[in-house]
Simulated assay, not measured.
Amino acid sequence: MNFAKQFLEYTVLTCLHVLSKLYCSVITFILSWLSPTWLSWNKYSENMLRTIEKKILQIVRTPHRGCFVDIGPVVGPADKIWTLSLNTESQKTPLVLLHGLGAGIALWCLNLDAFAATRPVYAIDLLGFGRSSRPTFSTDSIEAEQQMVRSLEEWRKEMKLKEIIFLGHSMGGFLAASYSLSYPENVKHLILADPWGFPERPKEYKDVPFLIKTVSYIMKPFNPLAGIRLAGPLGPWFINRVRPDISKKYSIELNDPNLIPQYIYQCNSQYPSGESAFRSMMSDFGWAKNPIVRRIDQLRAEIPITLLYGSRSWIDHSAGEIIKEKRIHNYFKLQVITGAGHHVYADKPESFNQIVLDACEYTDSLQNRNNLAIMPSESDQPESDSNY
């Protein structure tokens, strides 16, 4: 009986996979006729994105500055990364924020004041997302990942930041970890917020509902956020219908409930550059082709890791135990925020902010300890004529 059921599922999914490719071709052909040059279906506006972002960031009380950082020909001929800077006068180790798939710097609005109270903070639109450049990434998973990582390194060099604390959410956590493996000398702490792409993809889908499998196969030929672009001018409404919880996360601080869905729409109604890179890196939506757990033991031992999850997140959390085992003699702290989902930074911002601040303070304590260790002894210190 079980064999017959499995055979039926396999047959149906195989057929759906073939049909989904055909369906994708048909949709692509139709959309070529419904291009913005023939019918104003896509309502992306650079001015609108800038205006909405500015409205959202009005709730941030800390003085801040936005600018495009020219990183040169990393992927495209002249790539630029949109960057928000706060409290840059502070001498403490800077905190760099990397958002997840389909997001942008404005979605950190509930966290920026808390972080910037103690140190420099930089939030960026990853290359291919938000207001940053939209180059065409490689379709090879490893090369696409390395292109993203190289863009982060060129950005760091342009910003003249010697050492940084990385805070990466979801896909941003994956890229922060990958960067730390490639450029460990620049990373003082790796803070991973509900990171994507860490565990191995399960060999069997015993616990995955049949409906989810079916949807996964149907969506496989598409970029993950294609539905937003297909919705055209109905995009913000579509986002609100599919994910009404996202607006609610910000409702206490933002008076206009439409700002967040409009922002997400404007970020993702453009050419899906970074989104295509994500699709190249993923093995089905929930896993990466080159998961971090295969490489985490290569991370420099001196880099502390703080891993935090939302207790209600859909992300596969199995990598936590694996990382703990592989880094048993190195600093690793796991935090679970009760009641939070995947967007843990917005679900429970106060708890999230405190965990991040504690991680940053730990980094500061290490720095102070190292400074004390290299200070000359009292007898070696030069005499001073100053009186205090």
Results as ranks from 00 to 15, higher is better:
Ala4Leu: 15
Ala4Arg: 13
Tyr10Leu: 14
Leu16Ala: 13
His17Phe: 11
Leu22Val: 15
Leu22Ile: 14
Cys24Asp: 14
Ile30Ala: 10
Leu49Trp: 08
Arg50Gln: 05
Arg50Tyr: 04
Gln58Ala: 07
Ile59Met: 07
Arg61His: 15
Pro63Gln: 13
Cys67Tyr: 14
Phe68Asn: 00
Gly76Val: 00
Pro77Gln: 11
Ala78Asn: 05
Trp82His: 07
Lys92Gln: 15
Leu98Lys: 01
Gly100Pro: 05
Ala106Lys: 02
Leu110Asn: 06
Ala114Pro: 03
Phe115Asp: 05
Val121Leu: 10
Leu127Asp: 00
Ser141His: 13
Gln147Arg: 00
Met148Gly: 08
Arg156Asp: 01
Met159Cys: 07
Leu167Tyr: 15
Ser170Trp: 02
Gly172Thr: 06
Gly173Asn: 05
Ser178Asp: 09
Tyr179Pro: 00
Lys206Tyr: 09
Pro209Trp: 04
Val215Trp: 09
Ser216Ile: 11
Lys220Asn: 09
Asn223Glu: 11
Gly227Lys: 06
Gly227Glu: 06
Arg229Leu: 04
Ala231Trp: 04
Gly232Glu: 10
Asn240Phe: 05
Asn240Trp: 08
Leu254Glu: 09
Asn255Ala: 13
Pro257His: 05
Gln262Glu: 14
Gln262Leu: 10
Tyr263Asn: 02
Cys267His: 06
Ser273Glu: 04
Ser276Pro: 03
Ser280Phe: 10
Trp287Gln: 13
Lys289Ser: 08
Ile292Phe: 03
Val293Asn: 12
Gln298Gly: 05
Ile315Glu: 14
Ile315Asp: 09
Asp316Cys: 05
Ile322Asp: 12
Arg327Asn: 09
Phe332Trp: 05
Val336Ile: 10
Lys348Arg: 14
Ala359Asn: 06
Cys360Ser: 12
Thr363Asn: 12
Asp364Lys: 06
Arg369Tyr: 14
Leu372His: 12
Ala373Thr: 02
Ser386Ile: 15
